[in-house]
Simulated assay, not measured.
Amino acid sequence: MKIFLNIIYWTLIVTALIQFVPVDRSNKPVKQEENFVYLLNTPPAVRQILKKACYDCHSNETVYPDYAFVAPISWSVKNHVNEGREHLNLSVWGRYNPDLKKSMLENSVHSVKEYAMPLPAYITRHPEANLTKAERVLLTNYFEEILKSGAY
Rank of each mutant, 00 (worst) to 15 (best):
P22K: 14
V23M: 09
V23C: 12
V23W: 06
V23Y: 02
V23N: 13
D24L: 07
D24E: 14
D24N: 15
R25E: 02
R25V: 11
R25N: 13
S26T: 15
S26N: 15
N27Y: 03
N27R: 11
K28R: 15
K28A: 14
P29I: 13
K31G: 04
K31M: 13
E33R: 15
E33S: 12
E34H: 11
E34M: 12
N35W: 12
N35T: 12
F36W: 02
F36S: 06
F36A: 00
F36P: 01
V37K: 09
Y38V: 00
L39S: 06
L39R: 13
L39A: 04
L39I: 10
L40Y: 07
T42G: 02
T42N: 03
T42D: 02
P43A: 14
P43S: 14
P44I: 10
P44S: 14
P44L: 11
A45L: 05
V46D: 05
V46Q: 08
V46N: 02
R47V: 00
R47Y: 03
Q48I: 04
Q48D: 15
I49Q: 00
L50P: 01
L50C: 07
L50R: 10
K51Q: 12
K52Q: 10
K52I: 02
A53N: 04
A53E: 01
Y55K: 07
Y55G: 03
Y55N: 09
Y55H: 05
D56Y: 03
D56C: 03
D56E: 13
C57S: 02
H58P: 05
S59P: 02
S59N: 09
N60E: 13
N60P: 07
V63C: 01
V63A: 03
V63L: 08
Y64Q: 06
P65R: 15
P65N: 13
D66Y: 09
D66W: 07
Y67N: 14
A68D: 06
F69C: 00
F69V: 07
V70G: 02
V70R: 12
A71Q: 13
A71E: 02
P72G: 08
I73S: 01
I73H: 06
S74V: 01
S74A: 14
W75S: 04
W75T: 00
W75E: 11
S76C: 05
S76P: 00
S76M: 10
V77T: 05
V77N: 01
V77Y: 01
K78A: 08
K78P: 01
N79L: 12
N79R: 14
N79K: 14
H80S: 10
H80K: 15
